[in-house]
């Protein structure tokens, strides 16, 4: 049966929901910004798919959900007319000498995930995986099941494909999901507003993250490198065309203003200490995003009759969204 469905919010989850639902239903997308959804966390993110590394801090069920999502990404991207960079060649975790203790505790806290686990590496093994890191680190961990995608390319390609599928777009429109008006026009409403859904009833908070994009032709890293840092995990994620995403900070603040000098210094010095080739890199952008999170930092898919909400993906948007969207879509199909 085909339904008339409204998807509210055109960030990462909104795009995934629209892609799945438009295969079978008539979809209208509402978005408060434009087609780029510049305010959405998914636009700014480093777009890591790191279930094993995240298992250090999150519960096992979420990490397993992340593994499930990684399996879904290739078929999602195969629907798109344009190619989107997706990589699953593992990620490398390294630490400077003074952060060795943090690396040890990271290794101890990795949760075994359905047969996937980390491998300790010597300095020589690190340089086999990433020749340009030779001599820089004498220990690390390789997490083979991990990957990443190019989120900017995904944002563009998903919009293009949805337009071709005749999905209707209502940009620059803020809708009142709770008023019940939409329920009269649509069979289902899928609420993907992220932080836009914050209200007295919906106790979301924003967790600020800052991300730097660099153009670094001198650096030839082939997979994401995670550097142990005392406050937050910093990834150096190589994207196509010699671009690198360095991020992200994690600050309990809803300030959406430009990145601070301190955060910028932390991110850039982290990159520079991993590879001195970043010294001559060009800074393409320094962006700030707000991750929507509930107080337990766990995502929620909830349903009230025709209204289905997907929210609270926190720092795990790309890692969890495909599985959460599949859950929401299954409730409709």
């Amino acid at each position: 049966m085909s339904y008339n469905i409204a998807v509210i919010g055109f960030g990462l989850t909104g795009r995934l929901a629209a892609l799945e639902l438009s295969l079978k239903h008539k979809v209208t997308v509402y978005e408060s910004g434009d087609e780029q959804a510049l305010d959405s966390a998914g636009k700014v993110a480093a777009a890591m798919l790191a279930p094993l590394a995240e298992s250090v801090l999150c519960e096992q069920d979420l990490a397993l959900l992340g593994l499930d999502s990684i399996r879904r990404w290739p078929s999602i991207l195969a629907q798109l007319d344009d190619e989107v960079f997706f990589q699953q060649q593992g990620s490398l975790v390294v630490a400077h000498q003074q952060d060795k203790g943090d690396l040890q505790s990271f290794i101890q806290r990795l949760k075994p995930l359905a047969g996937h686990h980390g491998h300790r590496l010597t300095g020589a093994q690190i340089s086999e995986l990433e020749p340009e890191l030779a001599g820089r680190f004498n220990q690390g961990v390789f997490l083979p099941c991990e990957g990443q995608i190019d989120n900017h390319a995904f944002y563009q390609a998903s919009f293009k494909t949805l337009k071709q599928r005749n999905v209707s777009f209502k940009f620059a429109q803020t809708v009142d999901v709770d008023s019940g008006n939409l329920q009269q026009s649509f069979d289902y409403i899928v609420d993907c507003r992220g932080l836009g859904a914050k209200s007295a009833a919906c106790k979301l908070r924003g967790v600020r993250g800052e991300v730097v994009r660099l153009f670094a032709p001198e650096v030839k890293l082939t997979r994401p490198v995670r550097l142990m840092h005392p406050r937050y995990p910093i990834y150096i994620a190589p994207k196509p065309n010699d671009q690198y995403v360095i991020g992200a900070t994690e600050i309990e603040s809803q300030d959406h203003g430009p990145a601070t000098v301190r955060s910028t210094l932390e991110l850039l010095s982290a990159a520079y200490t991993v590879h001195s080739g970043f010294a001559e890199a060009r800074v393409l952008s320094i962006q700030t995003g707000l991750r929507p999170a509930f107080s337990d930092n766990r995502p929620q898919v909830t349903q009230q009759q025709q209204l289905i909400s997907i929210n609270g993906l926190y720092r795990h948007g790309y890692l969890l969204a495909p599985s959460l969207v599949a859950d929401a879509v299954a409730r409709i199909n």
Binding site: R205, G206, I251, E252, S253, D255
Partner: peptide
Amino acid sequence: RRQQSAAAGDDFWQL
């Protein structure tokens, strides 16, 4: 220190 403005940290401080 790192919240940038008083209002920005409200949700966390409320907790």
